[in-house]
């Protein structure tokens, strides 16, 4: 039985109130959900919050799932919405996010926050490159960031992204192109590392 078919069996059981089936559904998708959320937030705690919120929303709306799309696509959509809601709340609270800039006397400077993620020794350049990439991605508007992460991080097809974000494929492609151009601009600052001319 395919992963999608197995999901549908669990969903049908969950729709009948079987909490164990829902628990199994979480187990099957929590890792990938976390990975996506982490790529969006770049923060373990926030990723955990986003994933938890997302599964609560899935639970509340499970009766509405008709199986027209894959469960994972639906889950991507819900996680994206949870992430956007989280950022909206943060903006309302006027908190500084990791990638926000602080205005100083000499103009804007990047807020420096130590990255405590583990990285193997001897791969300093690769780590630096990955960090630069993540930093460039984190500077994108949230919606574009979600698209970039879905396509380049999660390997979703344009059609799946269009479905998850409820956008026409053409719009997804043009916005992704714009997002890539913006990333390029951010990375050009690191031209020495990347040999970009």
């Amino acid at each position: 039985m395919s992963q999608q078919a197995e999901d549908l069996v669990l969903i049908e059981r969950a729709q009948k109130g079987d909490r164990t089936a829902f628990d199994d559904l979480i187990r099957r998708h929590e890792r990938r959900a976390y990975q996506y959320a982490y790529r969006l937030t770049s923060n373990q705690e926030e990723a955990c919050d986003v994933v938890s919120d997302a599964f609560i929303r899935v639970y509340s709306a499970i009766q509405n799932f008709k199986g027209n799309s894959a469960f994972s696509t639906w889950l991507y959509r819900i996680i994206t919405n949870c992430f956007l809601d989280l950022r909206k709340k943060e903006k309302n609270k006027s908190h500084l996010s990791l990638d926000q800039t602080i205005s100083g006397v000499d103009g804007e400077m990047e807020r420096q926050i130590e990255d405590d993620r583990p990285g193997p020794d001897g791969e300093a350049e690769r780590n630096q490159r990955e960090r630069s990439m993540e930093s460039a991605v984190s500077k994108l508007p949230e919606y574009q960031r979600a698209m970039i992460v879905m396509y380049h991080g999660e390997g979703l097809a344009y059609e799946e992204i269009a479905e998850a974000l409820d956008l026409p494929i053409g719009t997804v492609k043009s916005r992704l192109n714009r997002a890539r151009l913006q990333i390029r601009e951010h990375l050009v600052k690191d031209s020495e590392l990347f040999n970009i001319t």
Partner: peptide, 25 residues
């Protein structure tokens, strides 16, 4: 050329990231 380089670099996003905490579930 810079764009192509960016597309190649975006492949790094596919690299495994930090594992979720053991108690995520």
């Amino acid at each position: 050329r810079a764009f192509v380089q960016t597309m190649n670099t975006l492949e790094d996003l596919k690299a495994p990231i930090a594992e979720p905490n053991f108690d995520l579930h």
